[in-house]
């Protein structure tokens, strides 16, 4: 090593390295900040458009929150076409998952039929509960109206075909859907009351 390990040298070099690295990091952060935000928005938008009927507004710009109980609220993205509301995407969550929180985007048309559901994040077991992202599971909700389609698994007397060997994850999914529907009901009630 060319440089002697004197106190002055050590402090100087270490600070230099830190300074250069921090500057580099700041630079990269500045460059990637916009794409990171864009990626997050794109992800939400993709989830929204996959679960509600065709729309021409920007739901993420008209977002509002609806409270379920105290300290518990869900985010709602309203979709409209030509100024006429066509449905709502509700970003629902549940903590009844097998290993933590499950976040699901649930889309309703204006009559309350489920147009589609899309898992945003989960940490369920791969190969078991993680199958909630398989079309074979989530396709069963398409077009169903929770007023007639009971949102509990068949084991509990409902209408949902649970994922094989993952009843807890299926129940969590059902819970997330029920919560979303509760929010939907409170929105539609409000607008009817206003009319």
């Amino acid at each position: 090593m060319a440089v002697e390990s004197s106190f002055k040298n050590m402090v100087l070099r270490l600070s230099e390295v830190c300074l250069v690295c921090s500057a580099l990091l700041g630079l990269v952060y500045g460059v990637t900040k916009a794409p990171i935000e864009a990626a997050a928005v794109a992800k939400t938008n993709a989830a929204i458009s996959s679960v509600v009927p065709a729309f021409d507004n920007t739901p993420s710009g008209e977002v509002f929150k609806v409270g379920l109980s105290e300290g518990d609220s869900l985010t709602v993205y309203p979709a409209s076409s030509g100024g006429v509301p066509v449905g709502f995407a509700v970003e629902s969550n549940t903590n009844r998952g097998f290993s933590g929180t499950v976040k699901v985007m649930v889309g309703f048309d204006i009559e309350g039929n489920i147009c589609g559901t899309s898992v945003i994040s989960h940490s369920e077991t791969p190969g078991l509960g993680a199958k909630m992202t398989d079309p074979s599971f989530y396709e069963q909700f398409k077009g169903k109206n929770p007023s007639s389609f009971k949102l509990t698994v068949k084991k509990d007397g409902g209408d949902i075909d649970a994922i094989t060997a993952a009843t807890i994850s299926s129940r969590a999914y059902a819970d997330a859907l029920s919560r979303a529907y509760a929010v939907f009901q409170s929105i539609t009630c409000k607008s009817e009351c206003n009319e």
């Binding site: 090593m1 440089v3 390990s5 050590m10 070099r13 690295c21």
Partner: peptide, 20 residues
């Protein structure tokens, strides 16, 4: 940078670089 770094603080320096 290895040539310019005193021997005793090389590990912290490497960690800073890697972490960056």
């Amino acid at each position: 940078v290895a040539g310019g770094i005193p021997d005793k603080v090389r590990i912290p320096c490497y960690i800073v670089i890697i972490a960056s």
